[in-house]
Amino acid sequence: MILSHTLTQFKGNKSRTMNYLDELENKTIYILREAYASFRNITLLWSIGKDSSTLLWISRKAFFGKIPFPIIHIDTTFKFKEIYEFRDIYSKKWGLDLIVSKNKSALKEKINPKKSKLECCNALKTEALKTTLREYGFKALLLAIRRDEHGIRAKERYFSPRTIDFTWNYQDQPLEPWGFYKSTIEDEEHIRIHPMLHWTELDIWKYIKKEKIPMVGLYFAKNCKRYRSIGCQTCCVPIDSNANTTTKIIRELETTKIAERNGRAQDKENSYTMQKLRSLGYM
């Protein structure tokens, strides 16, 4: 037994020949390739935010520049105009097979966040997604959620099945030992795959800097305000910040005490809103 103040070496569970960001990237590439090997009928959900844009970037690397499956953008019609501009430029530049998913009937009924945020998110995001998945028959959905975003998301598996009505059975999740993931599902199910689960917000920005990944301008400070998390214009609030470069954002995040999704309205309405939304099929 060692009880002295000397460095205590222990036998690690894996070899360490790479630096930290390379290690994160390699794990994500492995998961993406496992996902595509198991479920050829797969799609990636791109919100145009920093996490899913990073996932998209790594997907281009994993599949040598040509992503072999369609990309879905769920359009609530309430997104920032910068998001639409970015989407149109880069989907063309990167040759993406883009599907824009909208819940047209809910939009006709003029559903909006002013009445109820929960109802709005559920109709314009979850229901739109359900319809698109059904229409195209996708069995697997790549999502860029991360463990450090929210305590409920920290409970997720990399490969997480959903029932026909999109329910997440969080009380009995699959065994996921070492790099072995769920590779088949029942006909009526679909599977959510989370290749970015092990990244933190800070890791994402360090990687964006290293790889020079293009990002929506909303993340960078203008007039002492910037968005830390983006989505619908109606439900996002900017933070006070002077960080107008990736380097400054990294520095800001290294010292902040404010939670990332603080600018998001939905999390605060009720402590279990996220759990409720997610069990209904929210991302």
Binding site: H5, L7, T8, Q9, F10, G12, E34, Y36, A37
Partner: peptide
């Protein structure tokens, strides 16, 4: 703060697994 993982030797015999 005193923990330090033992870097395993990369001198181990080559193994590469085909994924796809």
């Amino acid at each position: 703060g005193l923990l330090k993982s033992n870097t395993k030797s990369i001198k181990k015999s080559l193994r590469f697994a085909v994924q796809d």
